[in-house]
Computed example of a mutant assay.
Amino acid sequence: MRIEELTLEEWEDEFPADGFGVFHRPEALQVLEEYWSGRLLLYGGYRGEQLVGLMPLFVRTIAGVTAVLSPPPGFSVPRLGPILLPASPKPHKRERTNREFVEQVLEKVGADDPLTLVGTVATPAYADPRPFRWHGFDVEPRFTYSIDLADRDIDDVMMSFSKDLRTEIRDAQELPLTVSVADVDAAAFVYDRYQDRFEEQGLSMPTSRDFAIDLVHALGDHARVYVVEGPDGERLSGILVLYSDEVAYSWMGGTPAYYEGTSVNGLLEKHLMSDILTEPELESIVAYDLGNANKEQLVEQKSKYAPELVSHYELKSGPLMSVAKRVYQELTY
């Protein structure tokens, strides 16, 4: 196997038809590169002319210490990491491809150097993190929630929701509310509401407004801004939804909002899932990712949608990585 450093244009040319996360898309990587205060390295692994692996890495050096990260902190990118594209379905060949690709990428970035810190949070598609463990990395399971939408209709999906959520949605449907896909400029509204929610909880918003808006613009048809409005056109709530090949991601928004005492977010979520199930341009989408299932305070609300708990992995080269990520996040902007 050989490892080649790719340009963003070459990454786009080599980009697979499936098996990737939305932030692997070249449009997303380009926006991340524009905002990241460091370098973007794009690696491709080849057997002969056959592409077998891809890895985006964000690199920055401060005070002699180099951090190599995927995803970079400070942008609300939940997962990134390697994409494996083994040519053979045989398990032993897939394992060899994974092992050799990881080994050679880590060698490329100098992961054995004590002044180089490497960390990645992989997508659920990257199911075998053992090569990182064998290289001395800490391997920690992480979790997200996903709603299976394959071969279902919206009534079937809703029947799996909790009773109180179904009641909430039915009540909202009786009100003079409108749910629609808004112009991408409405991303600013969703961001501002999301930021307000963070501030109410005494937290700092991890992502800049400009980055969020630029990302939605750059993704084009792979992003939508859903909003719910009252009868006077006042926007009550919204969600920024991003799309990979098979998965829709609830990226930002969905903050608590009410009309005449009734929550409007269940109606919002139902509408966007109904679109996935009925619109031809979204027919490849088979799951809706509700996001973070690691925080206890978020679990009760998200579990009302009867999602599947899906695991993935955070891989860190050592205990200093957590400290480094916090420092880098503070220095991102």
Rank of each mutant, 00 (worst) to 15 (best):
V323N: 10
R99D: 11
S160P: 01
I213L: 01
Y145Q: 00
K304Q: 14
I213C: 00
F58S: 13
T7S: 15
S160I: 02
L8Q: 06
D183P: 12
A28L: 07
V216P: 00
E283S: 11
G81V: 05
Q201Y: 10
S250D: 11
K304Y: 04
E9H: 15
R235L: 07
S311W: 08
S244R: 11
A182K: 03
A223R: 01
A125R: 13
R224C: 01
L106Q: 08
T123R: 14
L29D: 07
G110V: 06
L290H: 02
L6K: 11
P73I: 02
N98W: 14
G238N: 03
S180R: 06
T61A: 15
I62C: 13
A182M: 02
R209S: 01
R152P: 10
G110L: 03
W134C: 13
E296W: 06
R326P: 11
V241L: 03
Y145S: 05
P231C: 03
V247N: 05
N294F: 04
Q104T: 07
S146I: 12
I154Y: 01
E300T: 04
R197M: 09
R326W: 11
A67V: 12
P89I: 14
E300A: 09
N292I: 06
K93D: 08
K316Y: 13
R224G: 01
S160W: 06
D245G: 07
P16L: 13
W36Q: 03
S250L: 07
L298E: 07
A306D: 14
E234C: 02
D138F: 08
G318M: 02
A257P: 12
V286S: 09
I169P: 01
P86A: 02
W134N: 15
V228M: 02
L315P: 01
I276Y: 01
R130G: 05
I213H: 00
V105S: 02
S317T: 09
P26H: 04
D18R: 09
P73N: 05
Q301G: 11
A188V: 13
E4G: 11
V77G: 13
Q195M: 09
D155M: 07
G119A: 14
Y46V: 05
V31T: 03
G261S: 03
V52Q: 15
E174S: 14
F15G: 14
E200Y: 02
Q30F: 04
S237Y: 00
E246M: 07
I276P: 00
V184K: 03
Y328T: 10
P141K: 11
D192G: 05
I3M: 11
L240F: 00
R99Q: 11
R326A: 11
E246F: 07
R96T: 15
W134S: 15
L41C: 12
I169R: 04
L149R: 02
V102E: 09
Y43N: 09
G254D: 03
V139K: 10
P129S: 12
T116S: 10
P16F: 14
R224I: 00
D156Y: 11
V22M: 05
E260D: 12
L177H: 05
V139M: 09
M321V: 15
P307S: 03
L282K: 09
A122P: 03
G220K: 05
V181W: 00
P78G: 08
E103N: 08
Y194F: 12
